[in-house]
Amino acid sequence: MARRNAPEINAGSMADIAFLLLIFFLVTTTMDVDTGLTRKLPPIPEDIENPPEVKMRNVFQVLVNANDDLLVEGEPMLVSELRKKAKEFIIGDANNPNMPEFKLTQVPVLGNIPVSKQIISLQNDRGTSYEMYIKVQNELVGAYNEVRNEFAMQKFGKSYVDLEKLAETSETAAAQADAVKDVYPQRISEAEPKNIGDQ
């Protein structure tokens, strides 16, 4: 009876201490999500002697000079107009001799379908600003994405972006996304930059 229980230590303030630490970590750490344009560089070709021949009508030429001016298919243009023009080219028109040729290709899911031989050729100067370069890249990628979305919507009733999202869980969606990619392959070819603006 003489022995008393030792008084319990008050643990009420423990929560305060832990909260303090928690808030410190919440504030100091940045959970920044990195975003960006993902691209694939072409491997260095083994024979530079014989580049494959490409007809002029299949090439959509985009030039950017050292003053960040844009020349598309021989015409000066603003960045905001580029997407529409590029979309027209990617979709193409079988009856127009200036638009790219079509070739019947076996595509999974869709069967035999005419696929455009389009290529977008991008050339910039060494003096072009990086900001302008990204803008042009963005518009070209955007044009492909829009064309793919519209095509997927028309064929499968879902946009290409949704198909890509579903592709992780559903095999049919993955096959459909691949089919769309096969019909409109992203072909952006970057030529070696010129050095006229000297930087």
């Binding site: 993902t38 491997p43 260095i44 060494r126 990086y130 930059p193």
Partner: peptide, 22 residues
């Protein structure tokens, strides 16, 4: 300017590091 960026891209190609992100 794109000059230095292009040089870096060329080096990446030489090293066969082709997956890049701007």
């Amino acid at each position: 300017k794109m000059g230095i960026v292009t040089d870096v891209k060329q080096e990446l190609r030489k090293a066969n590091a082709l997956k890049i992100n701007y």
